[in-house]
Design a protein around this nucleic acid. Structure first.
Lengths: 236, 236
DNA sequence: TTCGCTAGTAGAACAGCGTTCGTCAACGAA
DNA sequence: TTCGTTGACGAACGCTGTTCTACTAGCGAA
């Protein structure tokens, strides 16, 4: 699915400025360097200055190839999205394919720092994101879910995946910065267990379960929740 | 539910510094002013300088009452959360109460700019957030949903509500800044309709449905999805 | 009443941010 | 060879969160 045929670019992506390879600075090089920083230090660590330094130049040079940081992040997000493998849709296995699709998407997002933040800010419309959306729609439609439910479900699923990935990315960042998340969650757990039982009886009931499961398990549960909910919309 | 009994504060909230009311600057005043800016201009508009100016002082003065901006936002978030009305749980109406609870929470978050961003960054553990969590757990437990599912569902629901609220808040901000969301979505719609049908057949099928419904409807659909999914976990 | 201490105030400054301006150099076309 | 265009980029603008430090207002003790 890597487009040999030209991908459709949203009209508001400013076209690269004629690509005169005078010095060795172009979108591709910039994006590669940006990806590296993104994975290592997250969006906040990815400043235009930091990126320029990495490329051995000044921040102003970047603006010849990218409109601003927002566009840079949009481009990065779509690049990342492009790494999600897209199977040929098989209606008899829509459930399985859907789960795999979004689980991989989730994993790939997490691998790339907190890039998921981008998806929470604006609807992703890059060519690669569109491919994911298309595949998801195809699977849901073929499952017999009515069009309106499909349309709204796309939104809900994307939101859940992105926010879940962001949460994991923040944990990863915490780890990177010194505080292991286990320690943090242990503190949280202690705090919870220390709450007065009389005031929080229901939470006391599930205090142990709250910290069970790694992020994959927890994500899988939520995704499954959405899919099971969707199944109730299937019309025969 | 406004605590006449002292609410339990997480241990990492720094206690207000002895509250010597020498001049008229304290947490309450600061939070009130911050709320005002937050609603009008969002988190990015709420800078420490802007806030200080509003209070007729310099930014340094704020740090006597609040550890840093992160803590300020945590406090604001919990204050907002405190405005969600909490009914006495009635197990026979758990479904209805749950829907109302989270729908109001969603609405209240949106009323307060993009404060939902705070909830996506870290697990909300303020006293008021705990009350919402407690009520939700109580309702789910009483519905016969097993503890592990309750625990993980809390996470999924909170994530969905927060991310959904954030999305709406961003639209609201767009409106505030001049570009009406309708116009933006019209452009997006046009872009979608302009996509080659052969390449995106499934999306072409639902292109009209994609822009149907206001944010409440769309949110309600996703919430319903989660609840229906949860119902499949009920053990008799 | 007076003194000294402390806690809140706030100006100034630091390091960083995204972005823009204006200059300079190199290349393609004429 | 010359000219015009265009990418490169140092410097600067206005902003951010935060800290340092000097200062002062008010209280408790003497």
């Amino acid at each position: 699915m890597t487009a040999a045929d030209q991908p459709i670019e949203p009209p508001w992506w400013t076209p690269r400025k004629n690509a005169g390879p005078r010095r060795a600075l172009n979108r591709e090089v910039i994006l590669t360097a940006a990806r590296k920083i993104l994975r290592a230090e997250g969006i906040d660590g990815l400043s235009m200055r930091r990126l320029a330094t990495e490329l051995g130049t000044g921040p102003a040079s970047l603006y010849a190839h990218v409109a601003n940081k927002e566009e840079l992040l949009d481009l990065l997000f779509d690049q990342v999205t492009g790494e999600v493998p897209l199977p040929e849709p098989d209606p008899t296995r829509w459930r399985e394919q859907l789960t795999t699709l979004w689980t991989t998407a989730h994993a790939i997002l997490i691998e790339n720092g907190d890039i998921a933040r981008v998806a929470l800010g604006r609807v992703p419309l890059g060519p690669n994101a569109l491919n994911v959306t298309e595949l998801t729609s195809a699977l849901l439609c073929s499952a017999g879910i009515p069009p309106q439910a499909v349309a709204w479900a796309l939104d809900a699923m994307a939101l859940y995946v992105a926010s879940s990935a962001l949460e994991s990315a923040i944990n990863a960042a915490m780890e990177r910065e010194g505080t292991p998340p286990e320690e943090y969650y242990a503190r949280v757990g202690d705090y919870m267990r220390g709450l007065p039982r009389a005031r929080y009886p229901a939470m006391a009931e599930i205090v142990e379960e709250l910290s069970n499961g790694d992020r994959q398990e927890r994500f899988a549960f939520g995704l499954e929740l959405l899919i099971r909910g969707l199944e109730t919309h299937i019309e025969k």
